[in-house]
């Protein structure tokens, strides 16, 4: 382990920008995911009849079905959003920082 390079990276403003951006993004998405899940639970807790209400009186499909399936899809979509930004923007920034300090 060569400490100087780690300190150089740490001191690099672009590294700090990367860390701040990525952390904020990761925590934001985590809070959205947990928030959606919690909201779903609270809905079941306080308004269970709402989830059991038919969307359309002629059809047996209740609001609970699209909401439940939507939650599953949102987990997938949120991971997709994170991977897209992390593997694109963040990794590119990361690569340029590493190239810069290793010169």
């Amino acid at each position: 382990m060569n400490d100087p390079i780690y300190e150089r990276i740490q001191a690099n403003p672009r590294f700090q920008e990367l860390v701040a951006k990525r952390e904020r993004f990761a925590w934001l998405l985590s809070i959205i995911m947990l928030g959606l899940y919690l909201a779903f639970i609270i809905l079941i807790a306080f308004e269970p009849q709402l989830l059991g209400t038919r969307i359309n009186p002629d059809s047996p499909t209740t609001w609970g079905i699209p909401l439940g399936v939507g939650l599953i899809l949102s987990a997938f979509v949120l991971t997709g959003i994170y991977v897209k930004r992390a593997n694109g923007e963040f990794d590119a920034l990361n690569k340029s920082i590493l190239e810069e300090v290793q010169q």
Partner: peptide, 24 residues
């Protein structure tokens, strides 16, 4: 019926959090 869906969701929501905070 519907309880089965609620139950399976509990197993899924941990995964995005693993990605955001732990995996990399």
């Amino acid at each position: 019926g519907y309880d089965g869906l609620i139950y399976s969701i509990g197993f899924l929501v941990g995964w995005p959090v693993i990605l955001f905070l732990i995996a990399e």
